[in-house]
Design a protein around this nucleic acid. Structure first.
Lengths: 181, 181
DNA sequence: GTCTATAATCCGATAGAC
DNA sequence: GTCTATCGGATTATAGAC
């Protein structure tokens, strides 16, 4: 009942990249964790970068979808609220929670990786779509932090006992509060 | 008018670690940037880790100071406001802005570094000191994000033209807003 | 304090057998 | 698809001359 090796490589790589960082994780570690050799990994991915690209791809598609949706919408307060809720929902989808954590934690190491670079841009563009002419810097920061809270809110827990579900809901509440003037 | 080599190593290392990430930066690069050899660097620092430790040390001392101050204070709203302003002021001191950025960007790579004072942990402890019994999760997230906004607020700019001074003031304003219930 | 030289190890990546 | 074996180069770190 085993999955195909390619998927298992992605799975293990995602975990190790997230836990240790991209640069600190070698293909040898990934291979050993899987019980295969480095050469086997290279059969499925031509380079280490390609593993990252394959991980970022699904997320990139989601973000492009969200971006084109928001561009078809009028720039109103209800739209901003809806955008925030959609973004929060994406972040909580099981297949994306791991990828989101991986991207959050490897921004610096991968900042010159074209697909990762795009992720940062998307956030900035989303804030751009939430902008209005003559908006104050404070409002701009506030709207940026509204989206960012959906990422950072879960870091409150530390290694404490706060329930995940509870934290996610609280983060959305705080984020919504940041959208109001 | 040159500084001593030890300080220059710290200076260059801080810049490269921040720009490229800790793991992606080699001692060869640091040495070359300084116009000396690797061996010269090793005379001043026994290991690569030790450079990081020396960088984190000043910041750790500042944070310990802030923590012990806050623990001597009553848990009131004015105290929380004062804590936030003090934290913001530290982050803006010229000798700490670089170190703060370095720590922000290398959380994952250095998360198993024993001597690193983890910024996330400090934030969690500071938030703990801002806690009250029976506080809702939403309030807790809100207070965490208040402090975190002081870090993340400056990321709004992307590569855009927003003035640094303007951003810093706006971040403080948003952060103060997050302290109010 | 800084150098040259080098040890020992690990890396990403490839060739070619099976 | 996975293997063994290896290449070429980079890495951290050390020894010892000056």
């Amino acid at each position: 009942m085993r999955e195909d090796t390619r998927s298992r490589i992605q799975e293990v790589a995602l975990e190790l990249f997230t836990e240790q960082g991209y640069e600190a994780t070698s293909l040898r570690e990934i291979a050993e964790e899987l019980g295969v050799t480095k050469a086997a990994v290279y059969y499925h991915f031509k380079t280490k970068d390609e593993i990252v690209a394959s991980l970022a791809e699904l997320w990139a598609a989601e973000m492009d979808g969200l971006l084109s949706w928001v561009r078809s919408q009028p720039k109103t307060a209800p739209m901003r609220r809806e955008l925030l809720l959609r973004y929060a929902a994406k972040l909580r989808e099981p297949r994306y929670v791991g990828i989101a954590r991986f991207l959050e934690r490897n921004q610096t190491a991968l900042r010159h990786h074209p697909r990762i670079f795009r992720m940062r841009e998307v956030l900035v563009e989303l804030v751009g779509e939430m902008s209005e002419p003559g908006m104050s810097t404070t409002t701009r920061v506030s709207r940026f932090m509204a989206l960012y809270t959906l990422h950072a809110g879960k870091w409150v827990a530390g290694d404490g006992p706060l329930a995940e579900q509870d934290l996610a809901e609280a983060s959305i509440e705080v984020a919504l509060g940041l959208l109001e003037p």
